[in-house]
Nucleic acid binder design. Structure first.
Lengths: 121, 121
DNA sequence: CCGTATCCTACAGGATACTG
DNA sequence: CAGTATCCTGTAGGATACGG
């Protein structure tokens, strides 16, 4: 493993596709108004669809369902259906999701840094 | 400092505005196709406008200038103008930017996790 | 060299009604 | 309960030409 994740050789180097692709993939995971928030919620407990809805009052059905589907496809979360009556569907972080979680949990800290009002030099 | 950045009290808790606001702010810093990449580039050296252009061949003038302006406004980077001939303009991370850098440098690792092909349970 | 100024398009995100 | 199916809108991002 390299010491520095963004190691470019010299000042005139073009961004390599490989380096940039990792960033794009990372952004795909967390981008959008709700994706990162969903991941952090599911980092604490497995939750059902209706429980997620309660925690995101502002998001529409279509969007929530779509984001969940996207996160499943990306391999961040898993969807488990229990054929009970009434139907129960639970969402849980995958192993990859749990691996990424410690890094993603630092994101609010970024927000904290830029809300603070100290010298901006 | 709390052990857990996203600590909700119980399962029926609504997301507090404060918690979600931190996430929104963090996303504002890194979202968009180029913002995070720009920050990581400037985490290595101070760069001039033309040097940034060379490293982002695919981005248009308007977008690059706009993203830089946004990052200045957010307090992530600083813009220094040197009244030479020809004109020189340099972009550098602010103190806040440097504070956030170690966390942001972990983002490519997220990309790496989800490019790997291991069991996705 | 270091950017604006215009114009344009696709798509993220939302409101609402309906379904297995 | 756990979602689709439609329809609609704003804006992020891009192409290109011009300006200090």
């Amino acid at each position: 493993m390299n010491a520095h994740p963004m190691m470019l050789k010299d000042r005139s180097a073009q961004p390599t596709d490989a380096e940039y692709a990792l960033i794009r993939k990372a952004l795909e995971i967390i981008s959008g108004k709700w994706r990162l928030y969903l991941i952090l919620l599911l980092g604490e407990h497995t939750l059902r669809y209706s429980e997620l809805r309660q925690r995101l009052p502002a998001v529409s059905e279509k969007v929530l369902a779509g984001e969940l589907k996207a996160l499943v496809l990306l391999g961040v979360i898993r969807r488990d259906v229990f054929a009970e009556m009434p139907l129960r569907v639970e969402y849980t972080l995958t192993q990859k999701g749990r691996l990424a979680l410690p890094i993603l949990q630092q994101m609010p800290q970024i927000g904290r840094i830029f809300n603070e009002c100290f010298d901006a030099t």
